[in-house]
Amino acid sequence: MSNSAKITISCRINQRPCSFETYPMTRLIDLIRDDEHFTGTKEGCGEGECGACSVLMNGELVNSCLVPAVQVNGADIITIEGIIRENKFSALQEAFVDFGGVQCGICTPGMVMATVYLLGKNPNPTEAEIREAIAGNICRCTGYTKIFEAIQHACGKLGALQ
C-alpha cells in the first residue's frame, strides 16, 4: 500500500467538501474516521461482513471498509453524523432507542444507515423486507427482534409525517 504513490481525492462527506492526499487503496472508512473525525462510523470486521461501517455513497449503501479511496473521487458520502440534520429520520432514531433496538450501540450507526437506505426506497416495508434489508448488519446483542419493532414503528410515524 505504502509502495504506491499518493493521489488527490475530492469528495463530499456530509455535505462538506473534502480533499485528501492519500494512497489509492486507503479505505473510505479511514478517510471518514481518521481524516474527517466522523467516528460514528464503526469498524467491526474490516471485511464487509458486519455492516457496522455502513454509509451512503452516491445514495447507495456501502461498507466503507471495502471502498478504496480511488473510488471515492467525486462521490457524495453520508454517514450517521450526516443524517442527524435531516429531521425526517429522527423519528427512526428515536424508535431505535424507545423500542430497545439499541444495546451496546456499536452496530447501531450501521443499522440506522441500512434502515435509512431501505426506507428511502421503500417507506412501508414488510417484516420480510426489513429482515432482508438489515441482513448485512450483524447485531450480537438484541436478537434483532426489537430492531424490527423499532423500524416498523418508525415507518408508521414517518408515513404519517409525509
Partner: peptide, 20 residues
C-alpha cells in the same frame, strides 16, 4: 420502560468507544 441513558449518544454515533 424509561428511555435508556446511553440511547441517544449511541443512535447518533456520538458515543465514544476506545477506537474513537
Amino acid at each position: 420502560p424509561v428511555i435508556r441513558k446511553d440511547g441517544k449518544d449511541k443512535v447518533t454515533g456520538r458515543a465514544q468507544y476506545v477506537d474513537d
